[in-house]
Amino acid sequence: MTETSSPAIATGAPVRLKSIAPPGHVRCPWYLRGKTGVIERDLGLTGNPETLAYGVEAQQIRLYRVRFTMKDIWGDDADPASDTLDAEIFENWLEPTHAS
């Protein structure tokens, strides 16, 4: 069983969800792709469900809770912008906020 090589991301660190649309079984909600939030907590390692879905051995990857403001997700017409949303996101969907 291969373990993830990437170090855990610190709570509070900003992260962006990849804006990609790969085929197959994916576990990242469409409405959060490309959006920026912060790590709310590290939930530890788990088998990558996007691989497990095909019945094969999966890499152990980190699962995080990422917090967004409604403004992060929906822009200026979010009502009110300061309400928040947490979602569970697997590390393979996260990229640093400075990535282009």
């Binding site: 788990t46 949303l85 947490d86 569970e88 996101i89």
Partner: peptide
């Protein structure tokens, strides 16, 4: 209005 709404999208194993 002064109560923050916190939505939890239960997208994985929690």
């Amino acid at each position: 209005d002064d109560v923050r709404v916190q939505v939890h999208d239960s997208t994985a194993d929690m």
